[in-house]
Every structure is written in structure tokens, then in C-alpha cells.
Amino acid sequence: MKVHVLHTGKVYIDRALAYKEKTLHPIPFTGWLRGKTKKMWVPVSSYLIEHPKGLILVDTGWHEEIRFNQKKHLGSLAYSMFKGDLPEGDSIAEKLDSLGIKSKDLDFVILTHLHSDHVSGLKHVQDAKEILTNEIEWKAAHKRIGYIKSMWNGVSIDTFSLTDIPYGPYKKGYDLFGDESLYLVHTPGHSDGMVSILVKMRNGWLVLASDVGYSEKSWEEMILPGVTTDKKAAYLSLKWLKDFSKRKDCIRVIANHDPAIIPGIIE
């Protein structure tokens, strides 16, 4: 098993989007009327998993359109709250090309949730054999605000139902290959249907924690993300992550937007 940690751009956000704040500002995560001292750049990550049973991409980073027309790509509302940046060579299409991989070579693209910084680059890999997201997230993305449907319009996306698994705050998820080697773990709260990825490496479990927390500080200090659809569920998901991180068979936990994470290969 080999996991490539890829940075597929970065995003300029208010720190209250990453770390929930108590403040008189009613919606600090928007960054509206908040100064530059409260803003931060964080990476937008994707992960390529070389599994014995196939190639799996987790999330897709920014689309190359972010380079030249991001206001149109994001829409005016989202653009007023955060900005994207995608250096040359960092799109998921360019990253895969540098590895000699075409999108049609991907057996699965797993979308942990459907927020823009996780699905923006989806059309770069729409030729993958199967694109999957949780059915709860799929339904939420068509009902709740905060999603940009144009990012997946015209793309064939399949959904999976939650089943009983041994892990997670609700012990619900999906065993991708049915062999207990890679679980999609239901970790809701930041969004209704978000999943984290548990990968069984040689020496233990690697956790790709999506946006359950924005960095190690999140679960160590139990700081929720600034945006949650269910605060109680977000707390339970973060508490599960904290507890799991302390297990002897947990080799590492990686949050999607953690600036401390350096791209590389985990074997």
C-alpha cells in the first residue's frame, strides 16, 4: 500500500473557518468585515492511494479554471468569503500526469464531501471508472446552501449507503473492497455526509480525516471547524478522531488543510 499526499492548490480563509471562535461577530467564518490579521492560507489536499486492488483518488483539489476565472468558478457568494490559488503543476490533472497516470486509470474517485475545495477539480478526473460519495452527502448537497453544483454537473457520480463497520463515531461507513483494508468512515458534522478514510498500512491505520478538524490542534484541543451542519455530530466525530489518534495501531492522522503536512509518499 502506498499513499501519495498531494497539495492541489491552497485556499485563503478566515481563521474562524478553520477554528470555531467565540466572538460578537455573528458569522466570523465568512471573513466579512474581518482584517487580514485574521486570515490564513491553508493547503487543499488530495490523496492518491495505490492499493493492491486498484488506484483510488480521494478528493480533487482546485480546477484549473481557478487560475483565470475564479469568481465565475466559485460564484460571487463563495468568492466573497475565500480565495483559491493553484500554482502551475499543482492541479490534480497535472499531478497525475507527472506520475504517468491518466484519469481513466483511476478505479475510484472518493469525494469525502462535496464542498468546493474538495470537488472543484472533479471534471479533470471525470473519466475515472467510478466516482463515489455518501448518499447522505449527495442529498444534502442538493438541499443545503454552501455547495456549488456546477462543479459536478454532467459528471456521473455514484452514491453508497452506510453499513455497519467497526470504526467511527457511529460505527457506520463503507468497506470499499469488502476486505477490511480501506474504510470510508461516516464522520458527519462539518457536513451531513462527510467521510474520513481509514487505510490499512503495513504497520497500522492511516487516517485521512478530511475536514473533521483542520489540523492536529483541532483534535488535540477539541476545536470544531467554524462551519458545522450539526454541532453535536461534529463534536462526536472530532472526539472519535482524537481517541483513534492515540491508538497504538494508528500510525498517522492527516487533516486536509493542515499547513504542517508536507506532500510526499507514505508506505
Score class of each variant (00 low, 15 high):
H115I: 12
M151S: 04
A128S: 15
I110K: 09
K139I: 12
D175T: 08
G146W: 05
Y170V: 04
L132S: 08
D158K: 15
S150H: 03
Y147C: 04
P166N: 08
Q126W: 07
I66V: 14
H118A: 12
D105G: 07
S120T: 10
K172Q: 15
I148A: 12
L86T: 05
S116A: 15
G84A: 14
I66H: 00
G168L: 05
V109K: 05
F68M: 00
H113T: 06
E135Q: 11
V58Y: 05
I157K: 11
K83A: 09
K171F: 06
F160A: 05
R144K: 14
P169E: 00
S98N: 13
I145S: 14
D158T: 13
N69G: 13
K171T: 09
Q70K: 06
G84S: 03
S91Y: 08
D175M: 09
T163A: 09
P166L: 11
A78M: 11
L162H: 03
I136P: 00
D117V: 02
K143N: 13
K83W: 10
L74K: 10
V119N: 07
E130M: 15
H113L: 01
R144S: 12
L106T: 11
V119F: 07
G146Y: 03
I110E: 05
N134A: 07
S150I: 05
A141F: 01
T133E: 00
G84D: 00
R144L: 15
P87H: 11
S150K: 15
D175G: 07
G61W: 01
D97H: 12
I157M: 11
G173M: 03
Y167T: 08
K171S: 13
K71I: 13
K172F: 01
K172W: 02
F108W: 15
L86S: 04
Y167W: 15
F108T: 01
K149S: 15
L77W: 13
K95E: 04
K71T: 11
G154N: 08
V119G: 06
M81V: 12
L96F: 08
S80I: 01
E65I: 12
L162G: 02
T133K: 01
K83P: 00
L132R: 13
S156E: 15
K102Q: 13
Y170L: 09
V119H: 08
D97W: 06
Y174E: 04
K172H: 03
L96T: 09
N134W: 03
R67T: 04
D127Q: 13
E94H: 04
E137L: 10
D85I: 05
K143C: 04
E130L: 13
K129N: 06
I66Y: 00
G168F: 01
I110S: 04
Y174P: 02
G89K: 03
L99I: 09
I145N: 12
G89C: 05
S120W: 07
F108R: 09
L96W: 08
L122Y: 05
T60G: 03
Y167N: 10
H142Y: 11
I101H: 07
H115M: 05
Y174K: 11
P169N: 01
I157L: 12
S116D: 06
Y174C: 03
F82W: 14
K139R: 14
K71L: 05
Y79T: 00
D117A: 11
L74E: 06
I92A: 06
L114I: 07
G173F: 03
E130Q: 14
L106D: 08
D85V: 03
K102P: 01
E135R: 14
K102L: 10
G61Y: 04
S120A: 14
G173A: 07
Q126V: 04
M151C: 03
P166A: 10
